[in-house]
Design a protein around this nucleic acid. Structure first.
Length: 562
RNA sequence: AGGGACGUCGCCAAGUUGGUUAAGGCACGGGGUUUUGAUCCCCGCAUUCGCAGGUUCGAGUCCUGCCGUCCCUGCCA
């Protein structure tokens, strides 16, 4: 990533700690890992973790592994593995090794035997419910399993039979023998291996017993020589177990887990469980629906990797739970795109406007800057004709005093063209404004001596004869409330915003935009940033609105009306 | 209630081992530039660090006690 990206990053407790450790010579290099479980798509919360992990390793001369935490074949799928790799790459990061917890199943099995042989683990043949009951509660200690003190040889034999497939699911589990009275419930003889007669996406039917997260994660870190295992706060209580296992196993290195607060953004949900529901119940079109906070979704929406990296850097890394306004994400996109997106003109909700003193049938090609602040982007020619489309919002018959756009008898500049005056308002039988008749001032043409004549407003337009009629999709927040999951008694899907998607089927685009390739991004002047949808084709263009421009007028309007 | 953690401006967030007037960003308010009411540029914006005591010449930084919030009783991760 760019150097400015790192130098502008605020300090955080993890970087401070690592810097100190590196300066004291404790580490030669820093090795981190990003460890997703392939049971869903990555979302913006994962981006925070990705950026952190890759940034720390890069900053201190190390590398980052991509490791799939695939210890539960009941939930994991290859398609998710593929999607995750695509998303991390898209974000702009290159992992050193692609790893899988399943790569270590043999070693993990040996580690389990090691624990058994040393009297530190045992096979419990009780059912799940009994084990749960014996775990105790938050305030009461648990009770020990009757199998807790069985001979190591007996546990070993049973474990080998489990591995050989001789026992059915649920017949027994391997438990670490720690302390049933520990105030930290994770230490009350946690289950570290369970029987699952289930094919695994990578190891197929080689195994019918699978290690738990706790047994796989730390050991995988150690095997990969990860120096710092960065994870979210809910794993804080697992650290004593993480450490216990590493201390009692013959692992090749000693990684350390550090926890930080996960990302929360208002008006959305960032848990895989909930995102999965949105997809499976059809509340959205799929994991890549532009309203989804998934990386695939916001990518399709038009977000850039740079804007997401900037966002993740800007919000910082701490241990305090915080909620970032969705608008912060949007602003980062605007900041990024403002600097480089070529400008175009497009009319979303067209209103016909006739220039009565413009010669019929004539086409005048006007020069327009592709980026007013960046002349390097050059210019293009846009056609002007007698009939053009303007935005319905840019005309108001009963205009308030501060309305700088077009009104009866009023003047306004047409962007990249000339000043026009509204002479006549044409209405249909129902009284709706259907057409405007205006006259233009030839002296005020761009480039002419009279071009510097000032009028209050400038509006965009598209020649009716040249316009590319297009579908444009506008997006709003997926939920109506800041924290959709806040109330345990209300299903979060009940908070879905019914107006989160608005499809405009007759937007009028400046010619040339129908040829825009995928991945292109434009600022439609005075409106916002738009990208072609992956399904867009030259003969049927479809644009997605990534984000609007900042709209001070809309804010004022709202303030007036209240 | 047992354990773990967090609480610095509306939202984020810096704050070296306690040492002058508490960074920065966003938001917000005011002004300027502008053929995007966009961008850009200036200016303003916490006598105060959850609360209450205490230690100290001196505390956001140390101690004590409260208050508030989050996480933990899956053979999920």
């Amino acid at each position: 990533m760019s150097s400015t990206e790192q130098s502008s990053a605020p300090n955080n407790f993890i970087r401070n700690r690592i810097r100190k450790e590196v300066e004291s010579g404790q580490y030669d290099q820093i090795v981190t890992r990003f460890p997703p479980e392939p049971n869903g798509y990555l979302h913006i919360g994962h981006a925070k973790s990705i950026v952190l992990n890759f940034a720390m390793a890069a900053e201190f001369g190390g590398y980052t592994n991509l490791r799939f935490d695939d210890t539960n074949p009941a939930r994991e799928e290859q398609r998710f593995i593929d999607a995750i790799k695509e998303d991390v790459s898209w974000l702009g990061y290159q992992w050193k090794n692609e790893c899988h917890a399943s790569d270590y199943f043999d070693t993990l099995y040996d580690y389990a035997l090691h624990l058994i042989d040393n009297g530190l683990a045992y096979i419990d043949e009780q059912d799940g419910e009994t084990i749960r009951e014996q775990r105790g509660t938050l305030t009461e200690p648990g009770t020990e399993s009757p199998f807790r003190d069985r001979p190591a040889a007996e546990s070993r034999a049973l474990f080998e039979r489990m591995r050989a497939g001789e026992l059915p699911d649920g017949a027994g589990v391997l438990r670490a023998k720690i302390d049933m009275a520990a105030p930290n419930i994770n230490l009350r003889d946690p289950v570290i291996y369970r029987i699952r007669h289930q094919a695994h996406p990578r190891t197929g039917t080689d195994w019918c017993i699978y290690p738990s997260y706790d047994f796989a994660h730390g050991q995988s870190d150690a095997i990969e020589h990860i120096t710092h295992s960065l994870c979210t706060l809910e794993f804080e209580d697992h650290r004593p177990l993480y450490d216990w296992l590493l201390e009692h196993l013959p692992v090749p290195s000693r990684p350390h887990q550090i926890e930080f607060a996960r990302l929360n953004i208002d008006f959305t949900v960032l848990s895989k469980r909930r995102l999965t529901r949105l997809v499976e119940e059809g509340h959205v079109e799929g994991w890549d629906d532009p309203r989804m906070p998934t990386l695939a979704g916001i990518r399709r929406r038009g977000f850039t990797p740079q804007s997401i990296r900037n966002f993740c850097t800007e919000i910082g890394v701490t241990k305090s739970e915080s909620v970032i306004p969705y608008s912060v994400l949007e602003r980062n996109l605007r900041d990024d795109l403002n600097a480089r997106a070529p400008r175009r003109m497009a009319v979303l909700r067209p209103l016909k406007l006739v220039l009565t003193n413009f010669p019929e049938g004539e086409v005048e090609w006007l020069q327009a800057a592709n980026h007013p602040q960046n002349p390097d982007q050059g210019t293009r020619k846009v056609p002007m004709t007698r009939e053009i489309w303007i935005e319905q919002d840019d005309f108001l018959e009963q205009a308030p005093r501060k309305f700088f756009r077009l009104k009866p008898g009023g003047e306004v500049r047409l962007r990249n063209a000339f000043i026009i005056k509204c002479d006549e308002v044409i209405k249909d039988a129902a009284g709706n404004v259907v057409e405007l008749h205006c006259s233009f001032d030839p002296e005020s043409r761009s480039g002419q001596p009279g071009a510097d004549r000032k009028v209050k407003g400038t509006i965009h337009w598209v020649s009716a004869a040249h316009a590319v009629k297009t579908e444009v999709r506008l997006y709003d927040r997926l939920f109506r409330v800041p924290n959709p999951a806040a109330d345990k008694n209300v299903d979060f899907v009940d908070h879905i915003n019914p107006d989160s998607l608005e499809v405009l089927d007759s937007a009028m685009l400046e010619p040339g935009l129908d040829q825009a390739g995928h991945g292109a991004c434009f600022q439609f002047e005075r409106l916002g940033y738009f990208v072609p949808d992956p399904a867009s084709r030259p003969d049927k263009p479809v644009f997605n609105q990534a984000v609007t421009l900042r709209d001070t007028w809309a804010k004022l309007e709202k303030a007036f009306s209240q």
